[in-house]
């Protein structure tokens, strides 16, 4: 808790100075990397948004939040057990929400006022709702996990006199989120985001 408070105080102090800062919002595609038997398909039903501020010319930090849903249809099959069997088709869904505190190292390109490539790391938490729909019935469970998100991306302003620009990033999310019922020892995805950013210089 002390560490989190220290980080928040640090951000508050940093943003008190007239440092460049930006917000972004983007669509987020995620492909599952863990327990692909349950859900193996990627999904573009995600969104990310964040606020970041430059602490120095090269270092920025901020907060990122995200929401995504990955899902897959499992055709009808019969599962047998010792005293019987069940036949149905399933719709497996994971609704995933994340929040991280992130830091970026921004590489200098040209005059450093149009293009901002960066590499960064986010640390935070992830909350998953594991849901299995079949007919009118539902099996569901949820869990929290610690989230680590290495990321590389680029910001491009649409002009030196314009604050609006585009953002793109690739990221790898590893979360300790586990669920025995649905076979998750961890929850890992790889994805990319594209969106808009508004920079306040």
């Amino acid at each position: 808790m002390k560490a989190i408070l220290s980080i928040l105080v640090f951000f508050a102090c940093a943003t008190a100075y007239a440092q460049p800062k930006y917000v972004y919002v983007g669509l987020d595609y995620n492909a599952p990397m863990s327990n692909k038997e349950w859900i193996g398909k990627g999904s573009a039903r995600g969104i990310r948004a964040g606020y970041r501020t430059f602490i120095t010319d090269r270092i920025s930090a901020g907060i990122d939040i995200g929401s995504t849903a990955i899902y897959e249809y499992k055709p009808t099959r019969t599962i047998e057990y010792s005293s019987g069997a069940i036949t149905t088709d399933y719709f497996n869904y994971i609704y995933s929400y994340s929040a991280v505190i992130s830091g970026q190292y921004n590489f200098l390109v040209g005059d450093g006022d149009i293009v901002f490539p960066y590499a960064g790391l986010g640390l935070g938490a992830n909350y998953n709702e594991y849901t299995q729909y079949y007919n009118i019935y539902t099996n569901a469970d949820n869990a929290f996990g610690f989230l680590v998100r290495p990321e590389a991306g680029i910001l491009v302003r649409f002009g030196t006199r314009r604050s609006v620009g585009a953002m793109a990033a690739i990221h790898y999310d590893y979360s300790t989120n586990k669920n025995a019922e649905f076979g998750y020892k961890n929850f890992t995805t790889a994805g990319f985001s594209i969106g808009l950013m508004f920079m306040d210089l």
């Binding site: 005293s83 069997a85 069940i86 149905t88 088709d89 079949y134 007919n135």
Partner: peptide
């Protein structure tokens, strides 16, 4: 898509 077929569960005295 959900309700186009019923869930069928059977149990027996083995």
């Amino acid at each position: 898509e959900l309700v186009d077929q019923m869930v069928v569960s059977t149990n027996y005295d083995n």
